[in-house]
Nucleic acid binder design. Structure first.
Lengths: 180, 180
DNA sequence: CACTTCGCTCAACGCTTGTAGAGTGAAGGG
DNA sequence: CCCTTCACTCTACAAGCGTTGAGCGAAGTG
């Protein structure tokens, strides 16, 4: 069933375990609140091993919050409802880690800015209206706000799994911003 | 011109200076990143004096991020455009401090949740639609997202002082959410 | 079976943090 | 003018941090 793993494979496996643990810890406590020791504890490993693998806490953080590049869709607006749906569900670990630190870590803020601006550009490029970029920015900011309100602040109306009802209200409203 | 200040007055003045310094530092670096020493340095005071005045760093933080209670308007929706305008300008120090820490400090998150939920309730109470609370929550979350995108992430289209143009796009769009 | 490689742990460092307590010197009351 | 009060500073400590280098023991090689 399971082949005996080679030394390199075992090493790669623990490296991956450490990275996953780091994403969880950064996602729970932010880039400052999460410590090398807490990450190591979660990965079941000695603290110094974390640094042997990733050089420094900062290097590990940079990897942990790197967004997985999504396939850029031609039909950007149609892609929107999909993104909205994902942001209202459970967030993937690297997204959680990035968002948790975006207000206190300049590095995370930079990654977030680049990521969001890319989204804005893709969205604005699909339109040729006067205010295209501004409208796209407002739309992206709205999804950002909903994600924070849902997963980090915990506003009552966004809790629970009445996700369909939320999308039913939000989606047409978002669409109306681009049409106008 | 200036009356000689009594001892109590001088003490109160330095206390206020420390609180103001704390709001700036918390606003710049968050509740963890700001240190008692950095706050004291900014206030031109010894670190231990900070604690003699406010007991602990946490106590000082709690005071520093306490929202100034605004007069609750009867015409909540009309109040909206005013709030939106303020959030697009420079943020007051206590708001900046609160927002900076809302993702990494459970205490700040709690204060923010209460504050936003109050806004939602005031807004939803003015309507009697089916989805009133959900729509109010989405609206409040949108303003939150715009504020973060403008002041903390720095999306290009929200920078600069084209505030009027932004409001011209956003205000009617927000209003349409409540009317529908 | 001997020898090397190397993934991993152990122990320790220098530094910064929040906080406590003693000390100081000027303001204020008799 | 003396003596108390007290706003403020100085010094110190224990804890936790990121990071480093030496050592161990099992996996791989001949």
């Amino acid at each position: 069933m399971s082949d005996p793993l080679t030394r390199a494979e075992r090493r790669a496996a623990t490296a991956a375990r450490i990275l996953a643990a780091a994403q969880v810890e950064f996602g729970l406590h932010g880039s400052d609140g999460a410590t090398v020791r807490s990450i190591a504890r979660r990965a079941g490993v000695d603290p110094s091993l974390v640094l042997q693998h990733y050089g420094s806490k900062q290097g590990l953080f940079a990897l942990a919050v790197r967004p997985v590049d999504e396939v850029s869709r031609a039909d950007a607006p149609a892609h929107l409802s999909e993104v909205l749906g994902m942001r209202l569900r459970e967030l993937p670990p690297e997204t959680r880690a990035l968002m948790r630190s975006m207000l206190t870590s300049p590095e995370a803020a930079g990654v977030m800015r680049t990521y969001l601006q890319d989204r804005v550009d893709a969205l604005a490029g699909a339109s040729d209206a006067e205010d295209a970029e501004l409208r796209a920015t407002v739309l992206v900011s709205t999804i950002l706000g909903l994600t924070i309100a849902r997963h980090f602040v915990g506003l009552a109306a966004l809790e629970g799994l009445e996700q369909d009802r939320i999308e039913a209200v939000v989606e047409p409203w978002l669409a109306s911003l681009l049409d106008a």
